[in-house]
Computed example of a mutant assay.
Amino acid sequence: MWATLNAGKAWSGEFINKKKNGNEYTERQTISPLRDNNGKITHFVGIKRDVTAGRP
C-alpha cells in the first residue's frame, strides 16, 4: 500500500476494522495522494465503504 501511495498512485483494498463497541467489519478503502504546486505529496485522502457481508 505505502509503496504505491508514495509512488504517487492511488491504492484500493480491504481492511478489517473495529467499531467502538468492539464489533469487526470489513471496509473497502480507496486512498489517493494529494500534491502541492511543486508536485510534492503533502496529504492523502481516503474514501471508506462498509462492505461487510450481508450489508445492504
Rank of each mutant, 00 (worst) to 15 (best):
G13V: 11
N38G: 05
Q29D: 12
M1E: 10
M1R: 11
I47C: 06
T42G: 01
M1S: 12
W11F: 09
A3T: 15
R55K: 04
D36N: 15
V45T: 14
G46K: 11
A10I: 07
I16L: 11
V51L: 06
G54M: 00
I47T: 09
K20H: 06
G8W: 12
A7D: 15
N21W: 07
K19I: 05
R35Y: 14
Q29S: 10
A10H: 06
P33R: 00
S12L: 09
I16D: 10
R28D: 05
E14W: 07
K9Q: 15
D50T: 08
G39Y: 00
Q29E: 14
N6F: 15
M1Y: 10
E14C: 12
W2A: 04
I41N: 02
N6P: 07
G39T: 01
E27T: 12
R55C: 05
K40M: 09
I47N: 10
S12A: 13
Q29V: 15
G46N: 03
K20I: 08
Y25F: 10
N17H: 05
A7I: 11
R28S: 14
Y25R: 02
K48L: 06
A10G: 07
N38S: 13
G13Y: 08
K48M: 09
G8S: 11
R28A: 06
A3L: 09
I31T: 03
I31Y: 03
G13R: 08
T42I: 15
F44V: 12
T42A: 06
L5R: 00
A10C: 03
I16A: 05
K19P: 06
P56G: 10
N37H: 12
K9G: 13
A10K: 07
R35W: 14
T4F: 04
N17D: 11
D36I: 05
K9C: 07
I31R: 01
T42K: 01
A7R: 11
S12F: 06
I47W: 09
G8Y: 13
T4I: 10
R49S: 15
S12E: 14
S12C: 11
T42P: 02
G8V: 14
